[in-house]
Design a protein around this nucleic acid. Structure first.
Lengths: 143, 143
DNA sequence: TCCTAAATATGATTTTTATCATGTTTTAAA
DNA sequence: TTTAAAACATGATAAAAATCATATTTAGGA
């Protein structure tokens, strides 16, 4: 479903949402282990997310990564779209070009309703929404 | 969701379900183009499916691949499991080892109900069931 | 100002997945 | 019994994804 990189990105963003702030930045080396992602790979990912405006960063001593107010209003779909193709979620399960509601492939009607809820949630809920769920103990980050 | 190989395998099996029979076998070269899969790659895949007992084959002139009665009673999950890991569908969307109903990750409750219908259908409906749907014009194979 | 700590940029390596190529075995039919 | 058409087996190559390494830039603090 998600590429490895996307999973890492989601984990990193949620970790920042819960643990960082404008004036409490977090360094790569301090989040790599907690979220269980290879440090060098994570560094590269965070840099890309930063370049694309999904997360914020500050260089130099006392620097690190964090989420701005604006950042945390973005959705997880925004995060995923940095890495995976935009149409990933709309593509036919069998990758058939001509598959659509009129001429559905054998898996179409099983796949579409299945995914629609997930897609909707990824698109509607902000990162902030997710971090609130975490803080309320409704969901967990055993990352 | 599915690996490329799994998609190819599903397409090939459904094609055989609709177009082949015990005494009308189909050669690799005659199905590669219709289902839009590289011939050499398809050959390798079909051989693996055959070895694992998912499809049947006959060597030599007038040989080819086909589905036996028993083959067509198998499910698409059986097909997919030849190639992808068995637990692919139960794995957490974020690949978190400790994610479960008691301590769900932020995507858990979105993912599980989402996938359950698909998984159920892949497990319950036989290949024959799918080929009947195709023959009844309910779904299509614009492969 | 200078040193050091951090992100940044870039590229190399490894691993996995997908694809291609080629020789071997089986079997129907001439 | 010979030939040729098919699957079968195995390995080589290519492409993509994941991972690692290293030099550069920025900025805080002594």
């Amino acid at each position: 479903m998600f590429s490895n990189s996307s999973k890492y990105a989601i984990k990193a963003v949620l970790f920042l949402a819960v643990n960082s702030s404008e004036d409490h930045r977090i360094m790569v080396k301090d989040m790599a282990e907690p979220i269980n992602v290879p440090q060098a790979y994570l560094a590269k990912l965070l840099q890309e997310l930063s370049r694309k405006g999904i997360i914020s960063s500050k260089k130099g001593p006392k620097g690190g990564f964090f989420l701005s107010k604006e950042n945390s209003q973005l959705t997880l779909m925004d995060v995923v779209n940095v890495i995976d193709a935009d149409d990933k979620f709309n593509a036919c399960l069998l990758s058939l070009e001509k598959c659509n509601a009129d001429k559905p492939c054998p898996l179409h009607d099983l796949a579409i309703p299945s995914r629609s809820k997930l897609i909707h949630s990824l698109n509607q809920n902000s990162i902030k929404d997710f971090s609130m769920q975490i803080e309320q103990g409704k969901v967990f980050l055993p990352l």
